[in-house]
Amino acid sequence: APNKIVNISRCGHYIRPYVHQQYIHCMNDKSILTKEKLHEQLIELKTTDKYWNQSVYLSSSGGSGGKRLFFATDIQENLRQRQILVNMMIEQNIISSTDICLNLFQSGNIYRSFEIFNDFCSIANCTTIPMGANANNNDIYEIIQYFKPNVLMGSPYRLMELALFIEKQEKNEIYFEKIYFACESLDKIKQDYFKRIFHCSIYIGFYGSAETGVYACQSPNYSSTKIYLYPKELVNIEIVNSKIIVTNLIRKRNQLIRFDSGDLGRIISTNENSK
């Protein structure tokens, strides 16, 4: 069956049987692939595949683990991954066509968060207001008053800058139903402050990386927790010594198998067919 996940012996685990191996990023002994080893493989790929940089979607990591890394994904497969995640978001009432989303994520220098969240909105058929992280707070404030967005999106750092600005305004009548955040954690102190300034109590985090793409997010039911949902048809998650190990299940080009995300976590069991 095309949706069945099987275990194969060559270079990895949990790969769909119809996947054509254009290039696989994994360890030959089936051990866990680290970011350092992945970087070595990407350098090697440039010397062995003259088409490595054609028809690809490029993402840049933040470089927190060492050298800055550029990961190439097939353009159509990248779009498919976003579609799968948004389908789950719609099913879980995370996003809807009635939402109006103010996007304050960062763009430029091959960083993709701004564009990613614009895409999520377009796929979900909801309105996005693409202001970006570098927009002036006065301009953002006017846009909020004009369009009345119900969803605020951005890194906690950028949202804090906006909150401090709004707090100083004479009319602080700003209301958001939901806040989408990524790039860093949102602690309880910030949540409490945002609730006072933005009058919002639903905080939805998104999780992923340049290598894996975005593959998990929170839902209103798990707002203000550290519980994230992911589509099982998109990724396989293993927990090894508390480390989150990711295998992407839909890529035919530059497959990523048993990749160490660098984060710690645990799996909360649900029934076999659920997200």
Rank of each mutant, 00 (worst) to 15 (best):
K178T: 09
K30Y: 09
E40D: 13
T73H: 14
E36W: 00
F71N: 03
L38W: 00
L152F: 03
S209G: 12
Q92L: 13
S224N: 14
S274N: 12
R82A: 09
I237T: 04
I189T: 13
P220V: 02
D139L: 14
E91F: 02
I90H: 03
A1I: 10
M27A: 04
L229T: 02
Q76T: 10
R16A: 08
R253Y: 00
N236R: 10
K252E: 15
I239C: 09
S60A: 15
P231R: 02
M27S: 05
L186A: 09
V240H: 12
F114P: 00
Y228C: 07
T98A: 15
E91T: 11
M27G: 00
Y146D: 15
P149T: 03
L159A: 08
T225K: 14
S185N: 15
K195I: 01
K4E: 15
Y228I: 11
K226T: 15
Y57A: 01
I174M: 09
Y57D: 02
N78Y: 14
I15S: 13
G65T: 15
I43A: 11
Q83A: 09
I94F: 01
A216I: 02
L249Y: 03
A72Q: 07
I15V: 11
C26M: 01
H20T: 15
N93W: 02
L102C: 05
Q81L: 13
S223A: 11
G65S: 15
I166E: 08
L69M: 15
L85N: 07
L85A: 10
N3R: 07
K190R: 12
S60T: 10
P17S: 14
S155Q: 04
I179P: 01
L58N: 07
S9W: 06
E173T: 14
D99M: 03
E91S: 13
F181R: 01
Q41I: 03
K226N: 15
I267K: 13
S242H: 06
M27T: 01
W52N: 12
I116S: 04
N136L: 07
S97D: 13
F147M: 14
L58P: 04
D99Y: 05
F117Y: 06
D49F: 06
D49W: 03
Y222C: 12
Y111V: 01
K4S: 13
E211M: 07
Y203D: 08
N28S: 14
N78C: 13
F259I: 02
K232W: 03
K148S: 10
G12C: 08
N150L: 08
I43K: 15
L45E: 14
Y203V: 04
D99G: 04
K188Y: 05
V151Q: 02
Y193K: 06
S55Q: 11
K252A: 11
M153A: 10
L45Q: 14
L159W: 03
S269Q: 14
S97T: 10
I8W: 05
R158P: 00
L42S: 06
G66Y: 05
Y23V: 11
N138A: 08
L79C: 11
T47H: 10
N3K: 12
V86M: 07
I94G: 08
E167S: 15
Y18W: 13
T128Y: 07
T127S: 07
E233W: 00
S64Q: 11
F259L: 05
N125P: 05
I174N: 02
Y203E: 09
D29P: 07
E173M: 11
S9T: 06
Y51Q: 15
S223T: 14
K243P: 04
I250Y: 05
N248L: 12
F70H: 05
T212Y: 00
Q41N: 08
